[in-house]
Simulated scan of single mutants.
Amino acid sequence: MANAASQTSYQLQTVSRALETMRLLEGAGSPLSQTEIAAALGEPVPVVFRILHTLENHGFVSRLPDKRYSPKGAAEPDGMGLPLDILKLLAAAGPHGARRSQLASRLDAEPGQVDAALTVLAERKLASVSGQDVWSPGFGLLELARPLLRGSLRTAVRPLMERLRDESGETATLFVTSGRQQVVVDVAASREPLRYELEIGRSFDLPTGAAGKAALAAMADARIREILNEAALPATDQRRIMVEIGRVRETGFATSTGERIEGASAVAASIRDESGRARGVMGLMMPAFRNPPDRLQHLGKVIVSQLGKLRLPEDMGVSEPDGESI
C-alpha cells in the first residue's frame, strides 16, 4: 500500500508540474525556451524536457523552429492572411531577412500570432530561420513558383546539367543556399543502373558534402565562421573545414566521399553571374567505387571550365539569399 500511495503521489506531482508549465506558457505572452521554463519552475532542464515532450506528444504545446515552446492553438494565425503578409515582408526584406520582432511590428500583430504563422511556414519549407532569429523565404516556394520561373537559374543551367550528365554518366544536381543549408532545386539523373540522386527539395547542412563546401567557399570568411558556429562544430572541425575551403578557392571546386551518403562521391563548383556573385552550386554525384580521386579531380576541372562559359545576368531569377560573396 505504501508503494501504491507513493506512486500516486508522484503521478499527482508530475501532473501538477505539467499544469504549472501550461499556466506559465499561457501567461508568458511569448514563447519560452526549455531553459527559461526550467528557471521559472525551479526544475532541472531534463525534467522540463520530459514534461514538454509529453505535452507536445499530446497536442498541448507546440515547439517552434527556434526550439521555444508555446501553448497549442493559443495564438493561431488568422487564416492565410498573416502567413501571406509575412511572406511578402520576407521577400521585400531582401538577402538580409527580417527578425520576428520586426515582422510583428510591421504587421501590428501579437508576437504569439507571428510565431504561429512562422511555424506553419517553416513546416512547409516556405520560410527558414538562421541561428540569429533572422527569417528568409524558404525554397519550398520554388515548387509553387516553378511554372513562373522562366529565365531562372534552373532554366539557364539545365542544358549544362544534362550535357555533364551525358558526358560523365553521373547525376548532375543544382543546389541553392537557404540559411545554413543547401537545398536541391533540380536533378539530371544518371542513366546508369547503379547511381545516386537526391530528391528536389531535400536539404543538407552546409558544412558537409562537396556542394556545401563549394557554397561556403564563395562566401566571406565572417559569414562562414557564423555558419560553423551556428552548427556548434568543435574548433578542430572548424579549422579543418576552413583549410578545405582554402583548397576549394584555389582549385575552384570541392570534392567529398562518404560525407553525406556512405559509398557516394561528389564534386561541385559555385555558379556565378556576370558580376561574380554566387548564385548556386552545380555538382556531380556518383558511386565511389567507379570514381577514384584522379577522376574526381578531372570532373572538377571540367565543371569549373563549363561553368566559366556561362553568362548569367545579374538579375537572374533564383539566387542565394545569404548575400555577400567573395
Rank of each mutant, 00 (worst) to 15 (best):
V243S: 09
D78E: 15
G169V: 08
E259S: 04
D294Y: 10
V184Q: 02
L164S: 04
G308C: 14
G73P: 10
S190N: 06
H96I: 15
A127Y: 05
L103N: 07
L89I: 13
S178I: 11
S270Y: 00
V183A: 02
L142K: 03
L118R: 05
T173N: 07
L174C: 09
F175L: 09
S305E: 14
G280E: 13
E230N: 10
E20W: 06
G179R: 06
A75Q: 10
K88P: 00
G42S: 09
F139D: 07
S30Y: 01
T236A: 05
L89W: 01
A288N: 15
D294T: 05
E244F: 02
G201M: 10
F253P: 04
I200T: 10
Y10C: 06
G317C: 08
G112A: 07
Q113M: 12
E43R: 14
E250N: 02
T177Y: 04
R277T: 11
S62L: 11
V302E: 11
P234N: 01
P207A: 03
A266L: 05
P159E: 13
A75I: 07
Q182D: 01
A116K: 11
L25E: 02
D205N: 05
T21K: 06
L107I: 02
G323E: 13
R272W: 01
S130C: 13
I326E: 06
P31Y: 00
S9Y: 10
L64D: 13
D273V: 00
G263N: 13
K309N: 10
G131T: 10
R158M: 05
V176T: 05
L153D: 12
F175K: 05
Q132T: 13
P207N: 00
F289V: 14
R146V: 13
P293D: 13
R260T: 08
G209H: 05
M242V: 12
S16D: 12
A98T: 08
L25A: 09
L233Q: 01
R180F: 04
Q34D: 09
A5N: 12
A264C: 15
A93M: 12
T236P: 00
N291G: 04
T54Y: 11
M316G: 04
S178H: 03
E36Y: 04
E262K: 09
V267L: 03
E250F: 00
E43C: 12
S203W: 07
R154M: 15
G280A: 10
M316F: 02
V15A: 15
Q34W: 05
V129M: 15
